[in-house]
Design a protein around this nucleic acid. Structure first.
Lengths: 336, 336
DNA sequence: AACGTTTCCGGTAACGTTGCCGGAAGCTCA
DNA sequence: TGAGCTTCCGGCAACGTTACCGGAAACGTT
């Protein structure tokens, strides 16, 4: 028990060869007699040899670890993305080290520093809602650690980015509401300054413009935070006069809250107000009436972002491209 | 650009002292002149020195990395648990390395081997639905890597475990249905052999027994897989005669599917059949009628499991305790 | 038979850190 | 004033691996 794990030295000693020979045999390089190689491999198998990861990465300066930071894993979208990432990481023999920022800038930075201190080969990042300043990220990049941002990005920061085409998704959703007859469409918007908030808002605005509907500031209701903080905004809806006939929410949770609220105030959905959300969370199918929404391919975003990062690690091109994945409008009963 | 990261040697050279001195200064141990210590710390700060993680863990044989394997991160419950784990890991200066088994035994084992090869200090594990045999886990434990299982456990495997009291949760849910007048209660059960399936089933059975209701094999509908595979089982419900008046599902997704199915077949919920689920997923609140369910504290499970593991890493007691967290019955409209 | 070439292997240094040992200087005290 | 103690520091080995160099042996060529 408790005996030390078997090393390359143990094998060398037992076989009466040098450690370099064992190392060569194990690493499948040339300059090795097939017979001795066979012997080494066999003994390694027998002794259940596992190369020491730390030692390897100490000498070749690669850890094969990818650091991932998301605002909150507890979110359908991010867990989908993480799922895609782990699958790709696994296929490519990379490890995935995970942190969450809990939507705060301070935790984001401290996580990032920890990951960098851990010598991660690359960083996958979706920023918190507080994050505005790319200065800290610059430092990291200067050290040579590639960064790929996904979903919540800093547009001005130079790195590869993978996002979904939120603008187009929002545009399609609002256009759909308009085509179904809505003329006064409320928008429940996200925190200002965040790329996803701005993009979705712009899609909303441009759809109005295309169909020559007036933009009314009073119809744009900002939420300070994400997720459950939409209620104050929602409560304003019932007091708007004239009553709006459509609602486009930044995410499904807000949309569902809105549906529940409206219905409890005897405002019928979809008859009086048609509603569309964003995300295609499981709740969108469960709610009554089922929610028209914009599906974003979270799993695909994760896969793609990880793929691009690994590619960048291998080939060091230091890119600055933005890849936009298409969304899909899922039409359900809330806009009937 | 591209210059190598600053090491302890660089500091030593600039200060004309030895590396050991720098190391001592940095590590805050005795045997060091306050003045030189100050100088070292200051220069380290100035040069932005970060200790090389790999080198450190190579010598002291601790990585401060915890490996986590779950069946699928894309699940509300597991992402909650993971969230708790990361938060505790962060507080204690541990890193979290993440893998998913995608519900297969093979991926579970290969992930585990990778994590162990990576010298993780400990392992947090929730097994796949295929996993029956603890042999591989034994090997790991023999190497001295502590394991804590959570949620989906192997009861016979000797290690600390953190689960929710599924039995009690199921019992309470079924008891609640009975008290609301149900006499023929269907159970949508999970894959056989999995601890959570068995425990919830037992709670169901014992609640029936307590209230002297007959157990009817035809009312127990097994699903082969989790999540979305419940539909074949659900479709049988409408054909049961006499029609059941209650339904307890192994999870909320199945319960929601059932509600949708029943209602589309003009079987009213809760009037004709009252329904209860398990998990308290967000969908349970969204669905119409809102779903009575059993809340399990996923975040708490994650926190606790990580805490226990870290404790075990520090103190090496090699425990074999099972901690059960209480569930909470959330009564909503589906059982009115 | 002498020379060049290939095949295979061992030795050594290095990666960045810590732990241990020994020793020089300065101090205290009889 | 020298013995003993404390304070502080440098040197060396080690962790497990890879990279590089040089060389012995075997082989082939003329």
């Amino acid at each position: 028990m408790e005996k030390h794990p078997v090393t390359i030295k143990d094998i060398a000693k037992r076989l009466n060869v040098s450690v370099s020979t064992v190392s060569r045999a194990l690493r499948n390089v040339s300059d090795i007699n097939p017979a001795t190689k066979e012997a080494v491999l066999q003994l390694a198998e027998e002794l259940n040899y596992e190369p020491n990861y730390m030692a390897q990465s100490l000498v070749n300066k690669k850890t094969r670890i990818i650091g991932v930071i998301v605002p909150a894993i507890h979110s359908n979208y991010f867990s989908e993305a993480l799922s895609g990432m782990t699958d790709v990481a696994n296929e490519n023999n990379y490890y995935l080290m995970f942190c969450q920022s809990n939507e705060t800038f301070s935790q984001e930075i401290s996580s990032m520093k920890k990951l960098v201190a851990c010598n991660v080969d690359g960083l996958l990042l979706s920023i918190s809602k507080e994050t505005k300043d790319p200065a800290e990220f610059e430092k990291i990049r200067e050290k040579g650690t590639p960064i790929v941002m996904f979903d919540r990005i800093l547009p001005d920061f130079c790195c590869n980015k993978v996002i979904v085409d939120e603008y187009e998704g929002a545009f399609k959703a609002v256009e759909h509401l308009i085509k179904r007859g809505c003329r006064r469409i409320v928008h429940i918007a996200g925190p200002a300054g965040l790329s996803i908030s701005e993009n979705r808002m712009q899609g909303y605005l441009d759809a109005l413009k295309k169909y020559k509907l007036p933009m009314d500031e009073k119809l744009i209701l900002r939420c300070k935070a994400f997720e459950d903080d939409a209620l104050p905004a929602i409560k304003k809806i019932a007091h708007l006069r004239p009553l709006p006939d459509g609602l486009f929410a930044i995410n499904d949770r807000s949309a569902v809250l809105a549906i529940k609220y409206l219905r409890s105030h005897n405002i019928s959905v979809p008859e009086a107000i048609k509603v569309a959300g964003f995300n295609d969370d499981p709740i969108s199918e469960a709610v009554e009436p089922s929610l028209t929404t914009v599906m974003q391919p979270g799993y695909e975003v994760g896969k793609l972002a990880m793929g691009i990062l690994i590619d960048e690690i291998k080939n060091k091109p230091n890119g600055n491209q933005t890849i936009r994945l298409r969304t899909k409008l899922i039409i359900r009963d809330s806009s009937k």
